[in-house]
């Protein structure tokens, strides 16, 4: 009797649990701790290239000598560009050495910002905006199309090492939603670009990827030929006249 009651209760509980959709957490960045691997461990030597060393000096000169640690973000960024779009532990250690702080202080920064990649990315790192305006305008479909076209999962690199797809939050381009960003690491830190491709459709996104594969540089910005930058389709519809000066002040007088 009791056993039956118990098993019935259990079944009820199971049912309740099943009804709750299993929310999977997708964090845009990788793990918050480091796992040694052959291409990413503290024993791998890592140094800035000669050209970048002068850049490092340049960057450091922007800050007072007793606040060297302020240079952590620009230096990490430079290191990331030099290292093909991601930061191995040894690069972070090198940055820590340059700005004279404990390595953990650099790790803290690098794990905080999702634009620092701590695992390998492709030469072209595609970042799909996942925030509400873009999502409403179809960013999920774009991501799906990209993943399907490239045959990878999110944050995975294609076999040829060319592409990877990640997610980003709003990049301030909502007016041209949906959009993706392409971080181009194919030419090291000299040829590094970080371009927005806006007003996409799944097909457009795939086209852009293919253009990159062919080595082209598709024009950045809106992909809707009828728009100029973020202007409305087919030209302005409001605010057609000259803007009125503020009523309270005579601008010419000052």
């Amino acid at each position: 009797m009791l056993a039956r009651l118990a098993s019935q209760r259990l079944r009820e509980i199971r049912q309740v649990i099943r009804q709750i959709p299993q929310t999977t957490r997708s964090l845009s960045t990788a793990l918050n701790y480091h796992l040694d691997s052959p291409d990413n461990n503290p024993n791998n030597p890592w140094e800035f290239t000669e050209a970048n060393k002068t850049k490092v000096k340049e960057i450091l000169s922007h800050y007072p000598s007793n606040y060297k640690q302020s240079a952590v973000i620009p230096l990490l960024d430079l290191a990331q560009q030099q290292h093909g779009g991601w930061l191995p532990v040894s690069a972070m250690n090198e940055v820590a050495k340059i700005i004279e702080v404990a390595p953990i202080r650099v790790y803290e920064v690098a794990t905080f910002y999702s634009m620092f990649n701590r695992t390998k990315v492709g030469k072209y790192h595609l970042l799909v905006c996942g925030t509400t305006p873009c999502m409403i305008r179809g960013s999920r479909e774009i991501e799906e199309a990209l993943l399907k076209h490239l045959g990878v999962k999110r944050n995975e690199v294609t076999k040829d090492g060319l592409f990877s797809v990640g997610e980003m939050e709003c990049m301030g381009c909502c007016v041209n939603a949906p959009m993706i960003t392409v971080a181009d690491y194919s030419n090291g830190s000299e040829g590094y670009t970080y371009n927005y491709y806006e007003d996409l459709t799944p097909e457009k996104a795939v086209e852009i990827v293919e253009a990159f594969r062919r080595g082209e540089k598709p024009p950045r910005g809106t992909q809707n030929p009828k728009r100029i930058n973020s202007g409305p389709e087919g030209g302005n519809t409001t605010l057609l006249g000259e803007p009125k000066p503020p009523p309270c002040r005579d601008l010419d007088a000052c």
Binding site: L27, T29, N32, Y33, H34, P42, I104, Y107, T111, F112
Partner: peptide, 13 residues
């Protein structure tokens, strides 16, 4: 390390 709800205390390495 990390941020938001992914934030955690650790030594990273």
């Amino acid at each position: 390390l990390g941020r938001g709800s992914g934030e955690e205390i650790g030594t990273y390495v």
